[in-house]
Design a protein around this nucleic acid. Structure first.
Lengths: 234, 234
DNA sequence: CCGGAGTCAAGAGCAGTGCTCTCGTTTCAG
DNA sequence: CTGAAACGAGAGCACTGCTCTTGACTCCGG
């Protein structure tokens, strides 16, 4: 679509990519805190001031890395879903496991997007779309787990009222009209649980209790699948 | 117990405290990232090098702030519990609400302890005891919610086997012999959910969905109370 | 083909950081 | 009272993000 016309534009595009790539390398090995524009420039053999022709500030570079991280995580999750079996519970398991696997493989990227934001940082519009992909995937699997006919043995819990009811109604209308609001709320709870648990594991808060956290993670995933009402496996 | 003998020791103790106090002020207003030893020294009217007589490094100062934050949070939670009604569910609610309230009132302190840790940071022994107080409080309330006689209408879920079973058995023996292991696991799940949700709210991940998060928070607290088996209120 | 306009890399420089070292001074203890 | 330990101040080092200037390069229209 956007053909690169001049050699200058081509060089610019390539350098922009290379800077981000080297920055991502340093992010992966050193963490966002220690990522240094000057070190990136040094590694690329250019003056530190030249970086600013491509990224107006360190925060902008970090934002690009954030978008990439969200996208990479969501791609990983999508790939896991594509390779997963067809039962909703197995897909839920595959999704959650993929998220954890990505987090353990890319701890600094995970910390960058789900850890402490930089004090003055406001998430630009471009980050919210890739960031939303993962909760959307969770909701999608939750929808797959809905029975075709409303169950009669386990009555649906009452829909929350008040402000939460309005928020849920809005979300439901936008992305899951077939999901009861109570179930949507539970999916959101499972969402926060998943990332809370992964964050705890990654940041060492489970060190004294569930040190190899694999079993605890797997168990929690099942409990959350129960919570959102995914049918048990036969 | 430890009487301060000399004037030098007294001055040292006081300065140590004042440095931490000023650091805490800057942490609260600027965040851990922007906390600067030199700024602390400047505010206290001393040379920056003098700080190092009291805290050997910035990380050590941060560690002291971390211990204080954990302690402050746990104290707040304990106070909320002391002022709470007697029913387990009300106490659970009070506890969770107090944690969220503290987090919202002290976002940078919360981010310091539950957000991204500094890359090379290993939690010293002195931090784990105050850090454990809050999960212990959650477990304590979960124990209050146990029926005096084992319920027969809702059979206890089977205890997890495998490595998780061993971890749960160890935890249970240490801190909650009267709690079934499955319930202990659910309390841990609720623990991670609580902090995941608070972190999400604080770091802006709920901005597009549950923006005033109060109602969602309250709802999730009830759902988690259900999960750990706290009796519903009459 | 060529000259002005826009783009670029490089370097110096600013203000700030954590941290170290030295150097007098103060304070404590034997 | 004296030697040793503790202390505060200041200079200095190696960094950081970022800005500004300078000179060279590339492109595009005439």
């Amino acid at each position: 679509m956007t053909a690169i016309r001049t050699a200058r534009e081509r060089a610019r595009e390539e350098l922009t990519r290379e800077i981000k790539l080297e920055a991502r390398r340093q992010l992966a090995s050193e963490g966002a805190q220690r990522l240094s524009l000057r070190a990136v420039a040094r590694e690329l053999g250019m003056a530190s001031s030249a970086i600013y022709r491509y990224y107006p500030s360190r925060d902008e570079l970090l934002t690009a890395l954030i978008v990439d991280a969200y996208t990479d995580l969501a791609d990983t999750a999508d790939a896991a879903l594509a390779a997963a079996p067809t039962t909703p519970r197995a897909r839920w398991r595959a999704l959650c496991t993929a998220v954890r696997g990505w987090a353990l493989a890319h701890p600094h990227e995970y910390a960058l997007v789900y850890g402490t934001p930089v004090p003055g940082y406001r998430a630009p519009q471009e980050t919210i779309e890739p960031a939303a992909r993962l909760p959307l995937a969770l909701i999608a699997v939750a929808r797959e787990g809905r029975p075709d006919t409303p169950a009669q043995d386990t009555p649906a819990p009452p829909a929350p009222a008040g402000p939460l009811g309005e928020q849920l109604a809005r979300l439901r209308a936008e992305l899951a009209p077939d999901l009861p609001e109570a179930v949507l709320a539970r999916a959101a709870i499972a969402w926060t649980q998943l990332f809370g648990m992964i964050g705890f594991e990654l940041f060492g808060h489970l060190a004294g209790s569930f040190d190899p956290a694999d079993a605890f993670f797997a168990h929690a995933v099942e409990e959350m699948a129960d919570l959102v009402g995914l049918p048990a496996e036969v």
